[in-house]
Structure formats: C-alpha cells, structure tokens
Design a protein around this nucleic acid. Structure first.
Lengths: 220, 220
DNA sequence: TTCGCTTCGGTGACATTGTCACCAACGGAT
DNA sequence: ATCCGTTGGTGACAATGTCACCGAAGCGAA
C-alpha cells in the first residue's frame, strides 16, 4: 500500500513495522496560507513532514526588519520544530505557511521512538538537520559577502520559477534579502533602466531572464 | 567511577550500560592548536565531545573574506562533524583548534548505536543541534541588522574575558565579524579617541570596559 | 463618480560600511 | 644594519542603510 511516506525519498526503505508506527501515530493536517506554523511563544508539539505547500522560515529583528532564512517545501521536514521541540531556548525565528500546507505531524514521543528504532529514520532526520545548517551557512555567506544586485537577481529568479512575473512589493523583497525597501527599489529601477524588468505596483515582470541570470551567476 | 562523561551536563544521567559503550568505544585524543578539525575535503569519522580547549568554526568566501560562526568549548559537542558525518553535501565551513584541544571521539557506528539505545543521549545530541542552530540565527541577525561599532564592542568583550588585553590583529577581528580590516581599524581608532582602548601592533588593551559594555548593550 | 484613506513606491540628503590603492611603521631574520 | 613580510593608517570612492517626506495607485464608502 502506498501512503504519504512514499513522497519522502529518505523514508522509502523503512521496514514495515516502523512504517506502521509512523503512519498510524501521525496525523495529516491542513492549514491555510498565512498560518504561523511555529514561532516565539508557540511550543511545537510535532515534527512536521511537508506533504504539500511551502513554509517560509524567517527571522525578525527588534527594529522591525526581517530576513527570510529558508523555505521548507513538500517532501522535506521542518526540523526547526524538532530543534525547538527539544527547546534549547527561546528562538526568534518563525515559520509561516506561504500557501495552504498539508503536513504529517509526528508527535514528540513517536518521533523519539522512531529515532530509537530505525536507522533509516535517523538518517532522514540527521540529513534534514544537515541540509538546514548548510542552508544557514549559505545565507550567512550571502548577506556577509554578496552584492545586493546579485542577490536580488537570484531572488527574482527563484521567486519566478515557471512564470515571468513576481508578485511582491519592494518591501517584501527587501525582507527576503534582509535589506531595506529603498535599496531594493533603486536596484529594481536600475534593472528597469536596462530593460530587464518592468515594474508596476506589486508586481515585477521579468523581460530578460537571460541577462538577470547572467548577473545572478556572477562570482566574486 | 568518574570519567570524562561527567564533564557533560546532559550526559550525567546515562544508564550504566550506555556509559560503558560510550567510554569503551570512544577514544580521547589531543590535537595541537591550529589543527583543522574538520573542513572541506576532510570526511569526518567521529563525533567530537570537547573535553578541553576551543574549536573555532568559520566560513570562507571565494573572495578570501571570512567570518567566525561560533566556537565550540569544553563540555560541548561539535555537531557539525555529525551533520557532515551524514554528509548532506559539501560544506564550506571549517573547524580549527584555537588552543590545544582534548576531545573524545565517538566513531560513526557507535554514535548511531548510542542514539538508538539512549533517550538521554538523544536529548544531548538534539539539544546540541538546537544550540548551534540558534547560534547561527543569532549570527545572521547580527550581520544583517547590527551596527559594526556595537558588534566590535561585543566581540572585544567576549575575547577578553578575564584579562583586559585582546591579542589579535585588526585583520583577525575583521574576520571574526565578517567585515573588512579598514572598517575595524577605523572603529578601533574611534574607540581609542574616546580613551576606551589603547592600540599597539597586535594587541588591543581595554581601558574602559564599562563604556565598551554600554555600547555593546545598545539595543536597536 | 468623488472623496478619503491606506499602501506602495520615488527621492534627496546623509551616515555607515566596504573596496581599492598605496604607504609607513614595526619587528624578526640574516 | 639591512631586508622583508606583516600590520595598520589614509584618502577617495562605491555600495548600502537610514530618514524624512512626498506623490501616485488602489480601494472602499458616501
């Protein structure tokens, strides 16, 4: 029988008994876009395995600025909830459902049992951690060392996957990059001047993805 | 009998059989200051539990700049090695022994067995992960949103714990903060102008820790 | 429609930080 | 003493962040 487990690469080879625990003891739930999946003041009770949708994990500063750390997509697990399941200390990041999200919720106790019983599950969990940590390393490298125009170009491309239109305010883009609105606005104007994009209120239309990609791939 | 295990808070309540495995199957080793404990191209074979000394974990950019991510001190574990034990992908961070380092090395297989058998050990491992992830969140917040003078003041304080003297070149301090030497030099000159420090080649002497602390604690 | 409100984006002035080129001072090695 | 690599100082400039303020676009109510 196929279950949602099969959507996770790392879990395909789980032995039958472990599979049964995982499927039997977890609950598939759906939350609407905009839901705060975890965040300061919310004690997470479950490890989430994302079946559909996207969760955006972001950091807020006291001064009101924010930065997007990474996104958790379908087929991945939201280990921040685990990390904070173990409650090292109060964390300042929060996870927000960007779309409607469907996820399997594994309660704390079940999670612990699975880690204990299954080497496959352990591998899955630890490699999820590794991925997030390397994601964070990447973010740090970007904000510390990369030019804004390059980062903006990269972000426009990732936010526009199939289509050529990015629906986002300059403010939202600035939050993606941990920068200020004015900086993003000015960069976008420069892109427009080069006929790479057209700008209208709330949307950026990519005219010359090739040129943008070339900038995004600039090294050093 | 007391062993090095007792130096780790989280491991004090390990059952006797698990203790025996941990002590029996791991090896205490010593490496001199400057050793690259892990890094690109080095496949880590062990989880390291730090008994004495400090490991500095830092990130290098292609352009040659660098930034210190965090330090692993005695009584903590170096989970980056675990993360990359599971080898998610090539990581760009490296760990360097800042002092002579004494550590217990737990081989991969033993680590796996311990995680499987002991809930205490699991807690220990996962809270180590949580701590590192929150460390990284903190670093991101700092570099994205915090002013350099404040960050420099903070760093000078943490690097001068008991003494009032920081032995470091401006270049090293810049690497700590992911900034440029000139920026650090100028900030230090400003601190000197205010009679907070005196500067000589390779050392910064803190004259007015109180004033520095006050700056370091500035919010927003 | 028109009015009024909110959100979004544009702008200039300025502060901070990063980059570059270059030089001078220091200190160790010969 | 001389040489030389390291360290730090400097000025000019570029890139980014901050602030105050404004006008335009959208949207709902009258």
């Amino acid at each position: 029988m196929t279950t949602w487990i099969d959507r996770f690469e790392g879990l395909s080879s789980l032995p039958a008994d472990v599979r049964d625990i995982l499927v039997g003891q977890s609950q598939v739930l759906k939350v609407p876009a905009g839901t705060v999946v975890f965040g300061p003041g919310k004690i997470p009770e479950n490890l989430l395995l994302m079946l559909a949708g996207t969760v955006r994990v972001q950091q807020l500063s006291e001064s009101g600025r924010e930065i997007v750390l990474y996104r958790v997509n379908a087929g991945e697990s939201c280990v921040m909830t685990t990390a904070c399941l173990l409650a090292y200390e109060e964390y300042s990041a929060e996870g927000i459902a960007e779309t409607e999200v469907e996820a399997a919720a594994i309660p704390r106790g079940v999670f612990d049992e699975l880690v204990s019983r299954s080497e496959t599950f352990r591998r899955f969990v630890f490699s999820a951690y590794s991925k997030r940590i390397t994601d964070l390393f990447f973010v740090i490298e970007e904000i510390a060392f990369q030019r804004m125009d390059i980062r903006l170009a990269q972000r426009l491309l990732t936010l526009s996957r199939e289509t050529d239109v990015v629906k986002a305010t300059h403010q939202k883009l600035a939050a993606e990059l941990g920068s200020a609105r004015e900086v993003v606005s000015r960069q976008l104007q420069e892109f427009q001047r080069r006929d790479w994009v057209t700008l209208t209120r709330g949307t950026i239309t990519l005219l010359d993805k090739y040129a943008i990609k070339k900038l995004a791939e600039t090294e050093a």
